[in-house]
Measured scan of single mutants.
Amino acid sequence: SIKEIEKEEIIKVLKEVNFNKKLASEILGIPLRTLYKRLKEYGI
């Protein structure tokens, strides 16, 4: 599903940037606030 793909992509990017959420949100092209929402939604 799209949610699974998105979750995997978020985890992959977070690992690449050593869990720097600000940098991860910039790489993913989403606002930091949205990233936090996704992390909560996906239980990351």
Rank of each mutant, 00 (worst) to 15 (best):
S1D: 13
S1W: 07
S1H: 12
S1I: 10
S1A: 14
S1G: 14
S1T: 14
S1P: 14
S1Y: 03
S1V: 12
S1C: 06
S1R: 01
S1Q: 13
S1F: 04
I2F: 07
I2E: 14
I2N: 15
I2V: 14
I2H: 13
I2K: 07
I2C: 06
I2P: 13
K3Y: 09
K3Q: 13
K3V: 11
K3A: 13
K3P: 11
K3G: 11
K3H: 12
K3C: 04
K3E: 12
E4G: 09
E4T: 08
E4C: 07
E4L: 10
E4Q: 12
E4D: 14
E4H: 10
E4F: 09
E4S: 07
I5V: 12
I5Y: 13
I5L: 15
I5H: 14
I5M: 15
I5R: 14
I5E: 11
I5W: 14
I5P: 12
I5F: 13
I5A: 15
I5K: 15
E6C: 06
E6V: 08
E6L: 10
E6H: 10
E6Q: 10
E6A: 11
E6Y: 08
E6D: 11
E6F: 08
K7R: 12
K7T: 07
K7S: 06
K7L: 11
K7F: 09
K7C: 04
K7Y: 10
K7M: 14
K7I: 13
E8V: 10
E8Y: 13
E8A: 15
E8Q: 14
E8F: 12
E8M: 14
E8K: 11
E8I: 12
E9Y: 14
E9P: 02
E9F: 14
E9C: 06
E9L: 15
E9V: 13
E9A: 15
E9W: 15
E9K: 15
E9S: 13
I10Q: 01
I10H: 02
I10P: 00
I10R: 00
I10L: 13
I10T: 10
I10K: 00
I10S: 02
I10G: 00
I10V: 08
I10F: 09
I10D: 01
I11H: 05
I11Y: 09
I11W: 08
I11F: 09
I11R: 07
I11S: 05
I11G: 03
I11N: 04
I11Q: 07
K12C: 04
K12I: 06
K12V: 06
K12F: 07
K12Y: 07
K12S: 10
K12L: 08
K12M: 09
K12P: 01
V13F: 03
V13I: 12
V13D: 00
V13W: 03
V13S: 03
V13G: 02
V13Q: 03
V13N: 01
V13K: 03
L14T: 02
L14W: 05
L14Y: 06
L14C: 03
L14F: 05
L14V: 03
L14P: 00
L14Q: 00
L14I: 06
L14N: 00
K15C: 04
K15P: 01
K15H: 11
K15W: 10
K15I: 13
K15R: 14
K15S: 10
K15T: 12
K15L: 13
K15Q: 11
K15A: 10
E16H: 11
E16M: 15
E16L: 15
E16S: 14
E16D: 12
V17R: 02
V17Q: 06
V17G: 02
V17H: 07
V17F: 05
V17L: 07
V17T: 11
V17C: 03
V17E: 02
V17S: 09
V17M: 06
V17P: 00
N18M: 10
N18H: 10
N18R: 10
N18W: 07
N18P: 02
N18V: 04
N18C: 06
N18A: 12
N18K: 10
N18F: 09
F19Y: 15
F19K: 03
F19P: 02
F19C: 03
F19L: 04
F19I: 01
F19R: 03
F19G: 14
F19H: 08
F19N: 10
N20D: 14
N20I: 05
N20Y: 05
N20R: 05
N20F: 04
N20Q: 05
N20C: 05
N20E: 04
N20T: 02
N20V: 06
K21C: 04
K21S: 08
K21L: 13
K21Q: 07
K22C: 05
K22N: 07
K22V: 13
K22Y: 10
K22G: 06
K22M: 10
K22S: 08
K22T: 09
K22L: 12
L23M: 12
L23G: 03
L23I: 09
L23R: 13
L23P: 01
L23Q: 10
L23H: 08
L23C: 03
L23S: 07
L23E: 08
L23W: 07
L23T: 08
L23Y: 07
A24Q: 00
A24R: 00
A24P: 00
A24S: 03
A24L: 03
A24K: 00
A24G: 03
A24N: 00
A24W: 02
S25L: 02
S25W: 01
S25C: 05
S25E: 01
S25Q: 02
S25V: 04
S25P: 00
S25F: 01
S25R: 02
S25M: 03
S25K: 02
E26V: 13
E26C: 04
E26H: 11
E26N: 09
E26P: 02
E26D: 11
E26K: 13
E26A: 13
E26I: 14
E26M: 12
E26T: 11
E26L: 12
I27K: 11
I27F: 06
I27R: 13
I27W: 06
I27P: 00
I27E: 04
I27C: 02
I27M: 11
I27N: 04
I27L: 12
L28W: 01
L28M: 07
L28G: 00
L28A: 01
L28Y: 01
L28H: 01
L28S: 01
G29F: 03
G29M: 07
G29W: 02
G29Q: 10
G29T: 03
G29H: 06
G29I: 02
G29Y: 02
G29D: 06
I30S: 01
I30V: 07
I30Q: 01
I30D: 00
I30R: 01
I30L: 09
I30E: 01
I30F: 04
I30W: 08
I30H: 01
I30G: 00
P31W: 04
P31H: 07
P31R: 06
P31S: 15
P31E: 08
P31C: 04
P31V: 03
P31T: 14
P31I: 02
L32E: 05
L32A: 03
L32C: 02
L32P: 04
L32T: 04
L32Y: 06
L32D: 01
R33H: 14
R33D: 15
R33V: 11
R33Y: 12
R33A: 15
R33N: 13
R33C: 05
R33T: 13
T34W: 07
T34G: 05
T34M: 11
T34E: 15
T34H: 08
T34Q: 13
T34R: 06
T34Y: 08
T34K: 09
T34A: 11
L35H: 00
L35R: 00
L35W: 01
L35F: 08
L35I: 04
L35T: 00
L35Y: 01
L35M: 04
L35K: 00
L35E: 00
L35D: 00
Y36F: 10
Y36D: 12
Y36E: 15
Y36H: 11
Y36I: 15
Y36T: 11
Y36R: 13
Y36C: 05
Y36K: 15
Y36G: 06
Y36S: 09
K37T: 08
K37E: 15
K37A: 13
K37M: 12
K37S: 09
K37C: 03
K37Y: 08
K37F: 07
K37Q: 15
K37R: 12
R38Q: 12
R38T: 10
R38D: 03
R38K: 15
R38S: 07
R38Y: 15
R38L: 15
R38I: 15
L39C: 05
L39M: 15
L39S: 02
L39H: 01
L39N: 01
L39W: 03
L39K: 01
L39V: 05
L39G: 01
K40I: 13
K40D: 09
K40F: 11
K40N: 09
K40A: 11
K40S: 09
K40Y: 10
K40G: 06
K40V: 12
K40M: 11
E41Q: 09
E41P: 02
E41R: 06
E41H: 07
E41M: 08
E41I: 07
E41V: 05
E41S: 06
E41T: 05
E41F: 07
E41Y: 07
Y42S: 04
Y42P: 02
Y42V: 05
Y42Q: 04
Y42N: 04
Y42I: 10
Y42A: 05
G43E: 09
G43W: 04
G43Q: 10
G43D: 09
G43P: 03
I44R: 05
I44Y: 11
I44E: 05
I44M: 09
I44A: 05
I44T: 05
I44Q: 05
I44K: 06
I44W: 10
I44G: 05
I44F: 10
